[in-house]
Amino acid sequence: MQKFNRRHAIGLIGGATAATLAAPAIAQNRKITVGALRFTSHAGSFVAYENGYFTEAGLDLELKFFQAAQPMAVAIASGDVDFGVTAISGGLISLAQKGAVKVIGGALSEEDGIDGQKILASDAAFQAGLTAPSGLDGKTFGMSTAGSSFHYMGSKIAAAEGVSVTFKPLQKVGAIIGALKSGQIDAWSIVPHIAKPLAGSGAVHIIGNVSDYIPNYQVTTVFTSEKNAAGEADLVKSFLGAYSKGVTDYNSAMIDKAGGEDGINAMVDLLHKYVYADQPLEKAAPGIINGTMRLNEGAALNMTSVEDQLSWFQAEGLVDANITMDILVNPSFVETL
């Protein structure tokens, strides 16, 4: 049965149904679109693109930027974007259930010994005694939306500490930062390249590490449309291959510091095109360096962490309880941990 999605709808309106049926994969100069956020966690795509790894793999790649992870997942479902990197959210799982998207690899993960995501407290709450996550009982915790990764993190932290928190949906990261700075909410958790400058300003305080509560947390994953995952294995493999090369370059320069100071600077230079592009390099560099977190080599995927996230979403009633790992993940492309 032919599924009816937006692309086909546009095709139908244009009266050219047959022409929209996918053409067979061309090995060379296959045009693909990759969704990205302007975060260092998307460095894999940026580095691979800048170093020409996608072109080498025969992919004519276009980066498409989003303000939040949620619209990116929807854009993949609608066929406007082929690959994306984002956190596992309730929306992503729902789209997977509807047969629209599939997780195919891992991107950002928490790792012992590397500075990961931070737990933040507002100055007002901090002064009132919220100096450690154990003091979160009865506090408000910021999140973008219900079913976001912030919701997952906050919930896991609260469960581990045996406290209860109230979640405040604020839609956008900017709004959460504003609410935290002005003391409208008490606590939040976020990647280090946002957490550290905030803490540096004195308006908020870092009170803990997410990795203490969710070890080996698979923060973001690589995903694509179900159609690509099922029918375009070669395309997915070429993409992941090129992407992984970018990841290796990034990890080696920023975490293993293989190129020393120069290597870091060259990498920061490269990333500055995409991250904090609106700020001068000298101002952006600390943010980019602070944001360094390990990207999964070979886009390896931590299945245990993904499974934990899925079951949490199900336990919270945010997604259908019948969704299995097979529906969410296609583990055939990468190494699983």
Binding site: T145, A146, G147, T166, F167, K168, P169, L170, Q171, A175, A179, Q184, I185
Partner: peptide
Amino acid sequence: MLGAEYGIGAYILE
């Protein structure tokens, strides 16, 4: 959109 746990709008946004 901002900080509402319950409400039709919050329900739709969620």
